[in-house]
C-alpha cells in the first residue's frame, strides 16, 4: 500500500457555514506532508476528520486503508497504527515523563521502548521530572513521545513548534525527519512557512475549505519561475526592477557601473510572499 491517506470530495458544514468544501488529498507512504492555511481555513476540521475525531458530511476518506468514521473495536485496531500529537495539552502534570510514556505504552499492541522514545525526543535528563515542571518546549517533546510510543505508521502533528525558540525548533525538526527516516508518514499542520519549507516533501495550501494547491515547497505558486526583484542604488535613489532573467539583468547593470553595483540584491519571492498572495492576504 503506497497511499497512506486518500481523501476525495470531503465536505463538512457547521450550520450553514461550510468549513470543508470539497477537499481532495493524496498522501504517500514515507512523506512529510504539510497542510498550510490561515485560521478558519478548514485545516483543523480536515485533520480531525482524518484522525476520527469528527464525522464528515460527505466524501470518501481512507486513512491507512480504513474509514476513520468507523466506530467500535475496528477503530481501536486502527488507532493502534496511528500517532496523534494534538495542540498543546496540560495534562499529567503530576506524573513524571517516564511514568506517562511507559503508561501510554500499555495501550498499544507493539509499542516502542519507553526509555528509547524518551531518548529520541531528548528528554532523558527529564525522565524523572514531573510534567508540570517542564518548559513549553520540553512539554511538546513529551507530547510527541506520547504520540510515537505506539510505533505508529502515520503521525499527525498539529502546530508542533508553536512557542519554541529557534534552537529548539531546529532540534525538533531534526526529530521529525528522524521519525520519517524510520519509516513513518507524517501529516503536519502549521502556519509557520519556514517550518513547511524546512520539513515538508509536499505542501498543500488550504483556504476557505478548499485546497488551492498541492506542490513541493520550492515549486509552490510557481515560485521557481516567479520574477526576481533586483534592487540597487543609483545616486540618491534606491531602484528596483522585476525580471524573469535576473542574471542577464545584473550583467547589463554591471556594464553601467565600474566595479561594485551599490547595494545590489536579487531576491526571489519567499514562500511567505507566495503563500500570502495565494490566500489573498497582504504583506505586512
Amino acid at each position: 500500500m503506497n497511499t497512506v491517506i486518500s481523501v476525495s470530495g470531503l465536505r463538512k458544514s457547521y450550520g450553514s457555514t461550510a468549513a470543508v468544501n470539497g477537499v481532495d488529498l493524496e498522501i504517500k507512504k514515507g512523506e512529510i506532508f504539510a497542510l498550510l492555511g490561515p485560521n478558519g481555513a478548514g485545516k483543523t476540521t480536515t485533520v480531525e476528520i482524518l484522525e476520527g475525531f469528527r464525522d464528515r458530511d460527505s466524501g470518501d476518506v481512507r486513512v491507512l486503508d480504513f474509514d476513520p468514521a468507523t466506530k467500535g473495536h475496528a477503530g481501536q485496531l486502527w488507532r493502534d497504527r496511528l500517532g496523534i500529537v494534538l495542540q498543546s495539552t496540560l495534562d499529567a502534570g503530576d506524573l513524571t515523563v517516564y511514568e506517562s510514556v511507559s503508561h501510554f505504552a500499555h495501550y498499544y499492541d507493539s509499542p516502542k521502548d519507553a526509555r528509547e522514545v524518551i531518548e529520541l525526543v531528548g528528554l532523558t535528563e527529564k525522565s524523572d521530572a514531573l510534567g508540570r515542571t517542564l518548559s513549553g518546549g520540553q512539554r511538546r517533546r513529551l507530547d510527541v513521545a506520547l504520540g510515537i510510543i505506539g510505533n505508529p505508521e502515520l503521525i499527525f502533528l498539529d502546530e508542533p513548534t508553536t512557542g519554541f525558540d529557534p534552537e529548539a525548533r531546529r532540534a525538533f525538526w531534526a526529530l521529525i525527519k528522524k521519525l520519517r527516516d524510520e519509516g513513518a508518514t507524517i501529516l503536519l499542520t502549521t502556519h509557520y512557512l519556514d517550518e513547511a519549507e524546512a520539513l515538508a516533501d509536499r505542501v498543500a495550501v488550504i483556504n476557505k475549505g478548499q485546497i488551492i494547491e498541492v506542490s513541493t515547497p520550492d515549486q509552490l505558486g510557481g515560485r521557481a519561475n516567479s520574477l526576481a526583484t533586483i534592487t540597487w542604488r543609483e545616486g540618491d535613489v534606491l531602484r528596483s526592477e522585476r525580471s524573469a532573467h535576473p542574471t542577464d539583468f545584473v550583467k547589463k547593470l554591471s556594464e553601467k557601473f565600474t566595479g561594485e553595483i551599490p547595494e545590489l540584491s536579487v531576491k526571489r519571492a519567499s514562500l511567505e510572499d507566495i503563500y500570502l498572495e495565494m490566500i489573498g492576504g497582504t504583506h505586512e
Binding site: 475525531f53 481501536q76 485496531l77 494534538l86 496540560l90 495534562d91 499529567a92
Partner: peptide
Amino acid sequence: MERDFGTLKRLRGTPMP
C-alpha cells in the same frame, strides 16, 4: 478538568478502549 486539559481528547486518539 481533564476535558479542559486535553487529557480526554488525547486518550481518545489512542487505542485505549
